[in-house]
Design a protein around this nucleic acid. Structure first.
Length: 297
RNA sequence: GGAGAGGUAGCGAAGUGGCUAAACGCGGUGGACUGUAAAUCCACUCUCUACGAGUUCGAUGGUUCGAAUCCGUCCCUCUCCA
């Protein structure tokens, strides 16, 4: 059993999209002379700048940033890749690591001992001809316990559970435990205000040239269908005159709001967050809390 | 002023005498989720003291054992003609 106080201390700043993570992270990092490790899957990708609200070099204010802007737009990447790279960076870091982002699963996998020794997801077509119910029946027959955890319509997860079940005997189980001593700060905001912020930010992104960003990607032959980040496909359709800009913008706002809600569900139920309501708390309060966590004072 | 069409739950939209508290879609809310996670999926959504009860389908008055559905009157919206 690893003693908790022997684990490396890390700060995590998470929260739904548009809540103001970046801003707070910079303030905190400057105060503690910390370094930021990005935990936002979308912001890892190069050239998806405006649409993912990626921090600019200026905004970084000389705070070192890691694992941001390093993947090709459609390059495949997984949680395991992320965890491996992030841990190398964090474990070798002299300064305080501040993990910032909204990809809950990535954060969870990074700060705890997720079992990532299984084979990655395959792209096999074994199940192509089968209905959801039929695929689910296969899972039931080989691992009924796993089957009870998914809905048969959640095809992606059902298939993944089949893959895991087939490997189960070859992979050593790992107890879920903390990997770092993490203080997880979850930023929240009144729902209505959060949605307004998302809407406004989306309008701003369009003004800042998001559509041009999309055009440039498409012009360079990037397969736009492989970009699953919210908005890119909608705007691509606008460039092809398949959708009006107005409609696209509305759809994007809608999808982003839905996404923020899903994130909140995750933070509430899957992560051990200390929530900071952004209207009722100041960066100074967060800094005080972090001081207490780091230096026990 | 005349002729037509229509007013259904937050929105769009079915329903045209009992099986309707009212299909379906959207939105909203809650939830699941250990390898593409800005993904994938599920549930709930008139009200309440909630395995039961109470109020709904523009308003109002009727017909009927029974109406969102049939009839009268009124109000409002849209299109066309003046």
């Amino acid at each position: 059993m690893v003693q908790k106080n022997s684990l490396k201390k890390v700060i995590v700043i998470t929260g739904p999209t548009g809540v103001g993570k970046t801003n707070l992270a910079i303030k905190i990092s400057k105060h503690f002379n910390a370094e930021i490790i990005n935990a936002d899957a979308s912001q890892m990708r190069k050239r998806l700048n405006i649409g993912t609200a990626k921090i600019s070099i200026d905004e970084m204010q000389n705070v070192p940033h890691h694992l941001i802007d390093f993947l090709e737009p459609t390059e495949s990447f997984s949680i395991k890749d992320y965890v491996d790279r992030a841990r190398i960076i964090i474990d070798g870091m002299e300064n305080i690591p501040v993990i910032v982002g909204g990809s809950g699963l990535y954060i969870q996998a990074l700060i705890s001992t997720y079992n990532l020794n299984f084979q990655p997801r395959k792209n096999d077509s074994e199940f192509d001809e089968l209905s959801n119910e039929e695929v689910y029946a296969i899972l039931q027959s080989i691992d009924n316990e796993a089957a009870l955890k998914v809905h048969y319509n959640n095809r992606k997860r059902v298939i993944r559970y089949i893959e895991l079940a087939r490997e189960k005997n070859e992979v050593e189980p790992i107890e879920p435990m903390p990997y770092y001593d993490a203080l997880v700060i979850g930023l929240t905001k009144d729902r209505f205000q959060l949605y307004e912020a998302i809407n406004n930010r989306c309008d701003k992104m369009i003004k800042n040239g998001w559509l041009e960003e999309v055009k440039s990607l498409a012009n360079d032959g990037i397969n736009m269908e492989l970009i699953k980040e919210i908005g890119y496909d909608d705007l691509y359709k606008v460039t092809k005159n398949e959708l009006t800009l107005d409609k696209a913008v509305n759809d994007i706002k809608q999808k982003t709001r839905n996404y923020a809600k899903r994130q909140l569900t995750w933070f509430r139920n899957k992560m051990n967050c200390e929530f900071f309501e952004i209207n009722n708390s100041t960066p100074e309060m967060a800094i005080e809390r972090i001081k207490k966590f780091l230096y026990n004072k």
